[in-house]
Amino acid sequence: EFTQISGYVNAFGSQRGSVLTVKVENDEGWTLVEEDFDRADYGSDPEFVAEVSSYLKRNGGIKDLTKVL
């Protein structure tokens, strides 16, 4: 089950073990991109978060400006 990723309007994530599946949706709710990120592939949590965040930004993730990150 996908849940909204904090700080984004149209990005959602689903966690299974160490694998986080993220997706970005358009205004109609269609999935634009979907990608798996395995936490085990990264040396640290900040590196993992930075990679996921960068992916979302590159692929149309819209920041939720009503929330302070």
Rank of each mutant, 00 (worst) to 15 (best):
E1S: 13
E1F: 12
F2V: 05
T3R: 14
T3N: 08
Q4C: 15
Q4W: 09
Q4R: 11
I5S: 04
S6P: 14
S6W: 12
G7W: 06
G7A: 04
G7E: 05
G7D: 04
G7C: 15
Y8R: 06
Y8H: 07
Y8V: 04
Y8A: 06
V9W: 06
V9I: 14
V9T: 11
N10F: 04
N10G: 02
A11N: 01
A11K: 00
F12N: 03
F12S: 05
G13E: 08
G13Y: 13
S14G: 01
S14C: 15
S14Y: 10
Q15S: 09
Q15L: 14
Q15R: 13
Q15K: 11
R16L: 07
R16Q: 08
R16N: 11
R16D: 05
G17V: 03
S18M: 07
S18E: 03
S18D: 05
S18Q: 07
V19T: 04
V19F: 02
V19L: 05
V19P: 00
L20M: 04
T21W: 05
V22L: 05
V22D: 00
V22A: 00
V22S: 00
K23N: 00
K23W: 13
K23F: 05
V24E: 00
V24T: 01
E25H: 10
E25F: 13
E25R: 11
N26P: 02
N26S: 11
N26K: 05
N26Q: 04
N26V: 07
N26F: 05
N26G: 07
N26E: 02
D27P: 11
D27Y: 08
D27N: 12
D27R: 09
E28N: 09
G29C: 07
G29F: 04
G29T: 03
W30A: 13
W30F: 13
W30H: 12
W30L: 13
T31H: 04
T31E: 05
T31K: 05
L32V: 12
V33C: 15
V33D: 05
V33F: 12
V33M: 08
V33L: 07
E34Y: 10
E35D: 07
E35T: 12
D36H: 12
D36S: 15
D36E: 12
D36V: 12
D36G: 05
D38G: 02
D38P: 01
D38W: 03
R39D: 02
R39Y: 06
R39L: 04
R39E: 03
A40T: 08
D41H: 11
D41G: 06
D41F: 08
Y42V: 00
Y42E: 00
G43C: 13
G43K: 13
G43Q: 10
S44T: 08
S44M: 02
S44H: 02
S44F: 02
D45K: 04
D45E: 10
D45V: 08
D45A: 06
P46E: 14
P46A: 14
P46G: 13
E47S: 04
E47W: 03
E47R: 02
E47Q: 07
F48M: 05
V49W: 15
V49E: 13
V49F: 14
A50Q: 10
E51T: 10
E51G: 07
E51N: 08
E51C: 13
V52S: 02
V52G: 00
S53K: 13
S53V: 13
S54K: 12
Y55D: 01
Y55L: 02
L56I: 15
L56N: 02
L56P: 02
K57T: 10
R58C: 14
R58V: 11
N59G: 03
N59D: 00
G60T: 03
G60S: 03
G60H: 06
G60V: 02
G60A: 05
G60N: 04
G61D: 01
G61W: 05
G61L: 11
G61P: 04
G61A: 15
I62Q: 07
I62Y: 08
I62C: 08
I62A: 04
I62W: 05
K63E: 14
D64Y: 09
D64A: 07
D64S: 07
D64T: 08
L65T: 12
L65P: 14
L65Q: 09
L65K: 09
T66G: 11
K67H: 14
V68W: 12
V68S: 09
V68G: 12
